[in-house]
Each structure stands twice: as structure tokens, then as C-alpha cells.
Design a protein around this nucleic acid. Structure first.
Length: 461
RNA sequence: GGCUCGGUGGCAGAGUGGUUAUGUAGGGGACUGCAAAUCCUCGUACAGCGGUUCGAUUCCGCUCCGAGCCUCCA
């Protein structure tokens, strides 16, 4: 089993060898919970869930430790809670519930740990104190700041030097910073803001320190894979490395993985551009498996151009796959499957999907023996297990499409189909075609096969 | 301005120093009362210009174009 992953730090595809193959440890930066998760947030969740599934398959389910944090204290949360006139606790609790509901629809496995920032405050305070003791951090105007000048390797992940950034910068430097890129480890809270007692007064943590404290607590000082969106490379992950490695003097994460952006009409989706699509809204129109499939149809490091066409195409493809899986009624023999090389090669999911299509072709071949057919279906199901797809019963998949219709509609449709079939048997094709046309106008498509007429919705939903 | 990453057939999207995926849309055919589904088949894509090579879409250089980061962000 030879897994290769692209590591941002070395800038190369690397053979994956865990620090300890009895326990493979991975960490993914999770959401800041102040609003509904958008489809761009779903990308790392889905991609690295796929990585988690592949690792579990290679090393064993109980030998992979996956932590994904929740940032539940942050300025954006405070602002949003104030606007909504609720407490930050209320807001984050609600948002976390929505988040879990949304990503469960995407068929994402639960991580082994899902720590919240507010539950890791003592560990953060300890790490900050340690950094102060080691002179990597300083206190100024009630803030504790990390001194980037003290960290010789600062910039190694994002491959930039402090000098370069200063030369090209166009932001004003906060007065309490010694150097422009110093970042906050701890900041004071006003009386009406959430805060915790600390050696530096009542305050709250800066954004980056939580991940350093959490990884240490749940995965250890050094661990295998740290992942997240490409926009976290700088400054978030750069700062995490600086904090953690300065604090314990060992390397932090062995491999760094970053997914590309999700774009809408060629532009990055972001709050400031106002082109946000929430997972929740998309789920009203497309089921989670379609969203998931869409996300995996582009390689995770490439930008993905998210569009209605992509979703429609994913739906068509899934229809085809589910239909083929259901062609023959043979029992699964549960034969052991090999992990496909495509997925072992830096999670090449588009290639895996093309391989699935080739297998589907075999399923559609009437000349294939039941034994071979079953073997092909098992392979497809295994691809599905690794990518979190094809989990529904094939019958359920097609029924699911029709949930938007009322029972009255459905029985009306059934009635018309019966009439049409009677007409067909009487060779009254004129009437039969008239009924087909009538249903077609309602967006219902009929398929006659094997003495049975099945129907589906034209737009597939 | 500095840094990073890209430009593949109508569209989406892998990959490769020579056999040119896969899907989707479209053309043709088989099948079908008609359709659908399925199968077969077709269109010969790799931004431009140089260089290396017996041979480059794939390696190197330059040019053009696009996106991103340097500020909260998955």
C-alpha cells in the first residue's frame, strides 16, 4: 500500500510514511461557527473525509486518529451575536447544530475528536506562557504577541520571506506590534465581551493558538498530516508552525495538505464578494451525494468551478451508476478489495471516477457472467466506500428524487401510466403517445423496460 | 510591486517524452410501436514562440492570458 500525498511544505508529492503506523494522526482546520457553512467550507470537509477513509482502509479503522476543531470564540462570532442580540454561546451552539446537520447530509464520517476552542483555553494559556518564557512572545498593551523575528524559519510553509512581505505590504501595522507580522496570542476582552482569566488579565485567545494547543492535546507535539483550505497557508498555518515548533522545539506536522478554492463564475467565493452558496440552500435542490460527487470530480488541489452544470452532470452520472448497480439481483460476497492506485496517488478522485465509469460499462454488458458482474459491482462499491458515495440502496436513490411530489401527484401519475399501458396493449398508440406527451409537459419522463414502466422527473429532482 | 499556481476537445476534467483517459453535450448506427435506458461509432484537444530530443501536449526558456496570496476567509 503506497500512499503518496502532495506536501505543501516540501512542495512535492511524497510517499506517506506515518510517524507511528499503529496510530496515524491527522488534523483538519474546521469552521468558525458564526453563520451557515457554505459550499466552499464543504470542500475540505469532503476531501479530507475521503483521506480519512483511505487511511482507515490502509491502516485499520482504529488506527487513525482524526481531529477537526471548531472555532467558537472569535471576533466575527462576537459581532454576529451582537447583531442577533443573543449570547455568543447561543449563537455557536445553534451554528454547530446546523453545521453537523449539513455535513451529515454529505455523508461525512465523524472525526475522532472535535474539540472546541472554548474548551481548550487552559492548554492555550499554558502554551502562551511557555512561549513568553522562551522569549518567543512578548506582552504589550495587554496583548500577548508572537515575535516573528525570533522564529528563524518563519515563512517556510508559504515560501515567503518577511522582507518580501514587508516590501509589498499595504496595511498599517498595529501600534502594539514590534514587527509587522507579529500576531496575537492573547488579547484583552472588554467587559461585555466573552473572556477568560489569564496571567495577562481577562481576555481571549488569538485565532492561531487554538490549533497548536489542540493538536498537542489530542495528537501530540508532532503528528502526521495537517490539512485545510489553501487560504490557510498564510498566515494561519505559518503561525501555527511558528508557535508549536518554537514552543516544543520539534517539528510540527510531517505533511501539509491544502485544497484549492471553490470558485463561482471564475471568482473565489467569499463573504466580501457576496457570492456565498450555503450547503443548506443547495441541499434543498440537490441531495448531499450529488454535492459530494461534484466536489470529488475535480482533483482537490485544483480550483473547482462550482456551477449548476457541474451539479447536473454529477446527477446524471450518479443516476447512471446507481442504475447499473441495480441491474442484476445477485448477493454480495464481501470479497476483499484492493485500494485503487488512483486514490493512493494523492487522492486522484477524478481518475477514480473515470475508473468507476469503466466498471459501470461492464455492469451494463449483458454478456458478462454473474460471477464477474458481481466482482465488478463489488469494486464499484469499494470505490464508493472510500469516497463516501453510492451508499444508498439503488432503489432508494431514485425514489429520493421524487420526494418533492405529493402522494396525490404520484398516484395520478401511476393512473396515467396504467391507462397508457392499457392503450399500448390494445395497440392504440395514438392514445399512448398522447398520455406520454401530457406527462412530458408536466416534466415526467417514462421509460418502458422489461414489461415495466418506470418514471422519473425531467430535471431529476 | 513581491510571491504562488494554472492555461487540455462545445463544456467539465485526468494524464503522459512516442500507443492521445473519463464524463457531458452533439452527429451517425443498433435496439424500441414511439421514446427512454443501454450498447457501438464519429469529431483527431493540449495558449503562443523558441530550445533540448529520433520524437514534446508532456522537459527548459521567453511571451501572452487567468486565478490566488501578501488583510478576515475552507
Amino acid at each position: 500500500m503506497n500512499l503518496k500525498i502532495f506536501d505543501t511544505l516540501s512542495g512535492k508529492k511524497q510517499k506517506f510514511t506515518p510517524i507511528n503506523n499503529k496510530k496515524v494522526r491527522m488534523y483538519v482546520c474546521g469552521p468558525t461557527v458564526y453563520d451557515f457553512a457554505h459550499i466552499g467550507n464543504a470542500r475540505p470537509i469532503i476531501v479530507f473525509d475521503t483521506l480519512y477513509r483511505v487511511l482507515r482502509s490502509i491502516y485499520g479503522e482504529d488506527r487513525v486518529s482524526y481531529a477537526r476543531n471548531i472555532t467558537d470564540i472569535d471576533d466575527k462570532i462576537i459581532v454576529s451575536a451582537n447583531e442577533k442580540k443573543i449570547s455568543t454561546e447561543e449563537l455557536t451552539k445553534q451554528t454547530i447544530n446546523f453545521f453537523h446537520e449539513d455535513i451529515n447530509s454529505l455523508n461525512v464520517l465523524d472525526p475522532d475528536f472535535e474539540p472546541k476552542a472554548t474548551e481548550t483555553i487552559p492548554e492555550m494559556i499554558l502554551m502562551i506562557s511557555d512561549l513568553i518564557n522562551k522569549k518567543f512572545a512578548y506582552i504589550k498593551e495587554n496583548h500577548v504577541l508572537f515575535d516573528t523575528n525570533m522564529s528563524k524559519e518563519y515563512g517556510k510553509l508559504s515560501k515567503r520571506s518577511l522582507d518580501e512581505m514587508i516590501a509589498g505590504s499595504r496595511v498599517e501595522v498595529a501600534p502594539y506590534k514590534k514587527n509587522q507580522f507579529d500576531f496575537v496570542l492573547w488579547k484583552p476582552s472588554k467587559n461585555d465581551e466573552p473572556g477568560w482569566e489569564s496571567p495577562w488579565g481577562r481576555g481571549r485567545p488569538g485565532w492561531h493558538i487554538e490549533c497548536s494547543a489542540m493538536t498537542k492535546k489530542y495528537l501530540g507535539e508532532s503528528f502526521d498530516i495537517h490539512a485545510g483550505g489553501a487560504d490557510l497557508v498564510f498566515p494561519h498555518h505559518e503561525n501555527e508552525i511558528a508557535q508549536s515548533e518554537s514552543s516544543h522545539g520539534k517539528f510540527f506536522a510531517k505533511y501539509w495538505m491544502h485544497n484549492g478554492y471553490l470558485n463561482i463564475k471564475g471568482e473565489k467565493m467569499s463573504k466580501s464578494l457576496g457570492n456565498i452558496l450555503t450547503i443548506r440552500n443547495l441541499l434543498k435542490e440537490y441531495n448531499g451525494e450529488i454535492l459530494r460527487f461534484s466536489m470529488l470530480s475535480t482533483h482537490y488541489r485544483q480550483p473547482i468551478n462550482f456551477s449548476r452544470e457541474l451539479l447536473e452532470s454529477s446527477h446524471t452520472q450518479l443516476n447512471k451508476i446507481y442504475k447499473a448497480l441495480n441491474l442484476r439481483n445477485v448477493k454480495n460476497d464481501g470479497a476483499q478489495q484492493l485500494i485503487p492506485n488512483s486514490l493512493l496517488d494523492d487522492l486522484n478522485t477524478p481518475m477514480a471516477i473515470s475508473e468507476i465509469h469503466e466498471l459501470v460499462n461492464k455492469l451494463n454488458d449483458k454478456n458478462i457472467s454473474d460471477k464477474d458482474w458481481l466482482a465488478y459491482r463489488n469494486q464499484i462499491k469499494f470505490y464508493g466506500q472510500l469516497m463516501g458515495l453510492f451508499t444508498l440502496d439503488p432503489n432508494a436513490w431514485f425514489v429520493k428524487d421524487k420526494k418533492s411530489l405529493s402522494n396525490e401527484d404520484k398516484s395520478e401519475i401511476e393512473k396515467m401510466i396504467n391507462e397508457r399501458n392499457l392503450a399500448r396493449h390494445a395497440h392504440n398508440f395514438e392514445l399512448a403517445d398522447a398520455i406520454r406527451l401530457k406527462l412530458d409537459k408536466k416534466g415526467i419522463i417514462l421509460e418502458d423496460s422489461n414489461n415495466k414502466t418506470i418514471w422519473k422527473l425531467k430535471n431529476g429532482r
